[in-house]
Simulated scan of single mutants.
Amino acid sequence: MSEQAHPPHDHAHHEHGAGCDHEHGHAPPVDADNQRRVFWAMLVTGGFMAVEVAGGLISGSLALLADAGHMLTDTASLALAWFAFKLGRKPADNARSYGYQRFQVLAAFVNGATLLAIVGWIAVEAVGRLLNPQPVMGATMMAVAVLGLVVNLVAFRLLHGGDQHNLNLRGAALHVMGDLLGSVAAIAAGVVILTTGWTPIDPLLSLLVAGLILRSAWMLVRQSGHILLEGTPSHLDIEEIKRELPAAVPAISDVHHVHAWSLTAERPLVTLHANVRTGADHSRVLQAIKTHLSERFAVEHSTVQLEPGPCADDTREDGCRDANKP
């Protein structure tokens, strides 16, 4: 994880304005509620994990064992998500000028990658079971799966009530949702086995569950990876910002060196340079730019460099140029 949350450009005279949020290290208040929800979901999931592992081993059900293995990783994943929220609430310091909130995104990436690995494991095991069928104790499988469904519903309800824009919480909820689907699949497989004796339904439903969580897991990895790579937030268009700001704030003639990234999925950040026309009130121009970024693009923190003349970066000997241009 980068210690610097934006590209290292030499913006020599940043102006933030009176309304600017300088508290980079303060986590949003909603994170306290998210942290509490993840903690209780972790306890519920971890407490049932041992029961499901034992049930899967006794019954010989792959669907139940797959769900149990998933719950094992879920307990660790929920613990990681809880720790990420706890760490994210620490204030900024000299080593982490933006605080520790980005760790939530890293936790979401790890959780997503773990889900992808679980999907792969389930697929391999399911194919093996289809090629070499094994006996399954449908009654034991059903009993443990029903109890697991109740536990997963409780955990999912806890997490679903939190902030769904938070990638860390979404990663935790996705793990639990996978467990919930696994319990449903195990119940369905148990019904089929008890009524027909057809055991291939167990690995087939396991493959179905793996397919259902694959897309969501990939989306989580892609979105969190995009943030970790300082990618432009999906709702922001840099070229649109360059076009709109001079029209919305007539006192500026040009906007350049625009960079946009996210501290977390909920906190987009922008830096930019703006050429100011002669005689304009810099304080009012600055406030107008920030107001437009906030109201039009939902950017609550921006770093703006006002320039009365040519861009200082473009005239430096090192040939610094706008990174947005090819």
Rank of each mutant, 00 (worst) to 15 (best):
S2A: 13
E3I: 11
Q4M: 12
P8E: 04
H14I: 14
E15T: 01
C20H: 15
D21E: 11
H22R: 10
H24S: 06
D31C: 13
D33N: 03
W40Y: 11
W40M: 09
G46V: 15
G47Q: 05
G47C: 12
F48K: 09
V53Q: 00
G56Y: 00
L57F: 15
L57D: 00
L64C: 10
L65I: 14
H70K: 06
M71Y: 03
A76L: 13
A79V: 12
L80P: 04
A84L: 13
A84V: 06
L87Y: 12
G88S: 13
D93I: 11
R96H: 15
Y98N: 02
F103I: 04
Q104D: 00
V105L: 10
A107H: 13
G112N: 02
G112F: 02
G112D: 05
A113W: 07
L115W: 05
L116C: 12
V119M: 06
W121H: 02
I122P: 02
V124D: 00
V124L: 15
V127G: 05
V127S: 05
G128A: 06
G128Q: 12
L130A: 06
P133M: 15
P135F: 15
V136I: 08
M142H: 03
M142R: 05
A145Y: 07
L147G: 01
L147P: 02
V151F: 15
N152L: 09
A155C: 11
F156A: 10
L159K: 04
H160A: 13
G162N: 08
Q164K: 10
Q164G: 08
N166D: 15
L167Y: 12
R170P: 03
A172V: 14
A173P: 03
H175T: 07
V176T: 05
V176S: 09
M177I: 07
L181D: 01
G182E: 09
G182A: 10
G190E: 10
V191N: 04
T196Q: 07
P200D: 01
P200W: 04
P203W: 07
L204E: 06
L207H: 08
L207D: 04
L208G: 02
I213T: 08
R215H: 14
R215C: 08
R215L: 14
A217Q: 01
A217R: 02
M219A: 14
G225W: 11
H226R: 05
H226F: 07
H226V: 03
L228F: 15
G231M: 06
T232G: 08
H235E: 05
L236V: 15
D237P: 10
I238S: 03
E239V: 13
I241E: 02
E244A: 07
P246T: 02
A247P: 00
A248R: 13
A251G: 06
D254Q: 15
V255C: 04
H256D: 06
L263N: 03
A265P: 02
P268H: 05
V270T: 00
T271F: 13
T271R: 06
L272K: 04
V276G: 04
V276W: 10
T278K: 12
G279P: 09
G279E: 08
G279F: 14
G279H: 10
D281H: 09
H282L: 09
S283P: 00
A288I: 04
K290A: 11
L293D: 02
L293I: 06
L293G: 02
L293P: 01
E295Y: 10
E295R: 11
E300Q: 10
H301S: 11
V304T: 14
E307Y: 14
C311K: 08
D314N: 09
E317G: 00
D318L: 14
